[in-house]
Amino acid sequence: MSDVKFDGVSFRYPTGPADVLRDLSFAPRAGEITWLFGPLGAGCTTVLLIAAGLAPRHTGGSIGGSVSVLGHDPQATETALAGQIGFVTATPQLQLSGIAGTVWEEVAFTPANLGWPIERIRPAVDRALEELAVEHLSRRKPGTLSGGELQRVVIASMSVLTPKVWLLDEPATALDASGRALAYQLFRMQADHGATVLVASEDVEALALVADRLVVLRDGHPVLDGPPKTLLAGDAIWDEGPGSTAVAALAREAGRMVESSRFAAPYPITVEEGVARWR
């Protein structure tokens, strides 16, 4: 079952010389974390903007093919599917409401805009703050938080909605190691509860462990699609451009210098796998 479907989608920005997406067909499955990965300009962020209903409505440009999100065409709805989609980007300071006096009010901003009754808002906000371990910041002004704290607050302000679809564009860039672990744990939990989680990221080391499916884009077209652990351990992902984890890169380079089955594909992708093979 899939809440998000792309069928033969092509897209071109108004100032772009060529299509950013070409004949893109794929459907991230509910209950899974689908990871979009590709070299710069591959079109990963554009996929998220289209699914959110923001492109081409806000960005301009022309779109072909069909897109379905939660049974709707995101282009046909009057406004984006606000409240049903968790949308997080790498720039938390630009995702704040800009007018909330406290972190608590920031997290309550979208539910209040959606007209939720206050009896529903209060427990939902408290739960979201707790999930992201930012309940101690609830009375702070958002403008006084660090980048990592802000990103947690932004994720909490989406988590409060318990969205069925998460669209995440480099969601952990501003986070430290513990924040990243917490955020990915939350996304994992959301997927386990049946949400569709679509992440565009170059955070190879983290997503290698947490994603269920990897879709590699090149020039706006899917070139690889499969389990991350399989694809990251192979040679094809290097041929297509984006590369793999640091341990896989080390194994691959070593294999070029020393002919040994210890350094041949499939490469280890984590430190633990490397230690197990090379011990």
Partner: peptide
């Protein structure tokens, strides 16, 4: 652009009555 995207996803453009907190 980024701010407009974020605000739309946060239902600023949805219209209707907002719940006062």
């Amino acid at each position: 652009d980024d701010r407009a995207h974020a605000l739309e996803m946060r239902a600023v453009a949805k219209g209707g009555k907002r719940t006062p907190i």
